[in-house]
Every structure is written in C-alpha cells, then in structure tokens.
C-alpha cells in the first residue's frame, strides 16, 4: 500500500502538461465563436467589438437553411438505419457461434482506418457505372458505410456486457424470441442504442469527404461550408454557422459518450464483482 502511494505521488510537471494539453486541444475550437461575434469582416486581432450581425445575415440566407435541412434528413436516416443494422450485427456476433467472427468484425471496422477518400471514389465509380445519379440518397449510402463501424463499436460491448442466461430465463418463462428481444434484450442495451443514434447522427451531420464525392445538386451542410470558404467576405457568417454547429453538436456528443460509457462500466464492474 505504501509503495502504491509512493508510485502515485502527484507529479507537478505532469499536471501542468495535462492542463496545457487540454487548453491547446480546445483553443482552436473556441476561437471560432470568439470571431463569430467580432465586429469586423477580417478574422484578426485586435477584436473590434461585439456584434450579432453575422448571425442575422446567416439567418436570412436560404442556401444555408437548405443545406442544414439536407444534413438533418441524411443524418436522421443514417442514424436510424446504421443503429438498426448495428443492433442486428451485434446480436448475431455475440449470440451465435459463428465461424469467421473475428474476420467479420474486422471487415465491419475497416472504414474506421482506411482513408475515407478511397471509399468515396470507389462508391462514386460504382454509382456512375450503374448510372445512378448523385443525390442525397447516394450521400446516405456513403454515410452508412462510415457510421456502421461506430454503431457496432458502441453496441457490441452492450451485448457482451450482460448475462445470456437472462434471455434464456425469459425463454424458459414462455416468451418467444421476438418478445424476449423487446422485453429483455432491448431494455438492457437501450443506453447503447441511444449512444449509437446520437453518435451516428453527429458523424453523418459533420461528414465531409464522402459527401464531397457523392453529393449531387443538393449540398449537405459541410459541403455548403466548403463551397463558401473560397470567398473571404463570407468568412464571418461561416464562422457564425460553425459556432452554431459546434454549440449544438458538443452537448449531443457529450450525452452520447456519457450514456454509452456509463452502463458499460457499471456492467463490467458487476461482472468483476460476481
């Protein structure tokens, strides 16, 4: 015990490092809202004063609204489909003796590490050979590929985390598979489902490179932002748009990670105790 406390003696320089690390991590993101309220068309110091005119200008801009609704529609569709597919995949992987399990999981997780641009161009080539016109549907397909690994990664620990005998108990008590799923399995994995929905929605909402290759005439929000970056006079209103996106996505992600982790750490503690 004494040795442990000796090992865990607070280390002043490490603490300072950690503090600086966090500041540097957040500073760039915090600069965006700072300049969004700055009363100058140039993004530079010294600050000129407080204004909300960039937000007003943004509010009156129809293309930005269109792009926003496009992203919401794609994001919701992708979140629901990828979470349902994630649930199905996680259940199959954890509940059945499947040969080639590891290979399957690796395959699903592939889009996590392979450069997105390769998936983007590969899908673009396929769609154009098939003569499918680019639209929000093709963006949705691209986002599904990107979001599925995150859905599975969020849901897998959930399905692994609880005792299989609970499902068997339900079957013993006369429920069929369908009702066992809704009355036992689903409530147990519910936090994972919420986390997966929130995460996949945010990833799709922010995704750029797939949408860059697969968007037709209707842009998503990141594509709209990209198209406006060429015009320096648009900078302030893009900063305003960016701060709004950050303002709404940070709490969403925070809830997602919190809900997703909370249960998992509890259940793993549960198994550790028993």
């Amino acid at each position: 015990m004494k040795a442990t406390s000796h090992l865990q003696r607070p280390n002043r320089s490490l603490q300072v490092y950690a503090a600086v690390f966090l500041v540097v991590l957040y500073l760039p993101v915090l600069l965006i809202p700072l300049f969004a309220f700055n009363d100058s068309i140039y993004v530079r110091f010294p600050l000129r004063g407080f204004t909300t005119q960039w937000f007003v200008e943004l509010w009156n801009r129809q293309p930005a609204w269109n792009a926003f609704w496009n992203s919401i529609r794609v994001g919701l569709t992708v979140a629901v489909i990828s979470t349902v597919l994630g649930i199905v995949a996680a259940k199959a992987i954890t509940r059945y003796r499947m040969p080639g399990r590891t290979a399957l999981v690796t395959f699903i997780m592939m889009p996590l590490v392979i450069p997105g641009i390769i998936f983007g161009v590969a899908l673009l080539v396929l769609l154009s050979r098939m003569g499918v016109p680019l639209s929000l549907y093709t963006v949705t397909l691209g986002h599904l590929i990107v979001c599925l690994p995150f859905a599975v990664a969020t849901l897998l620990p959930r399905f692994e985390g609880f005792d299989r005998s609970m499902e068997e108990a339900s079957a013993d008590l006369g429920e069929n598979g369908w009702w066992t799923f809704w009355r036992v399995t689903f409530p147990m994995v519910f936090p994972g489902v919420v986390a997966s929905l929130l995460l996949t929605f945010t990833i799709s909402f922010d995704e750029f490179i797939m949408a860059f290759f697969l968007t037709g005439t209707d842009p998503t929000l990141p594509i709209y932002i990209w198209s406006q970056l060429r015009f320096p006079q648009q900078f302030p209103s893009i900063l305003a748009l960016a701060s709004l996106v950050l303002f709404f996505s940070i709490p969403l992600i925070f809830i997602a990670i919190w809900v997703g982790r909370l249960g998992v750490s509890q259940s793993s503690e549960g198994t550790a105790e028993s």
């Binding site: 991590l25 760039p28 993101v29 965006i32 993004v43 530079r44 932002i225 996106v245 950050l246 996505s249």
Partner: peptide, 25 residues
C-alpha cells in the same frame, strides 16, 4: 479529451486556417 474529436473535422481544420493564416490569429 475525446470530445473535440467528435466535432466536425472540417471546422477544426478551418479553425487552424484562422489561426495560422496570413492575417490570422
């Protein structure tokens, strides 16, 4: 630590452009 990672990649890169730019921060 992981929170900023989930926010838009495009916007984080854009923030660095604002910081490092010719007339940047």
């Amino acid at each position: 630590i992981t929170l900023p990672f989930w926010t838009s990649y495009l916007l984080r890169v854009f923030a660095w452009k604002v910081i490092l730019g010719y007339e940047g921060v």
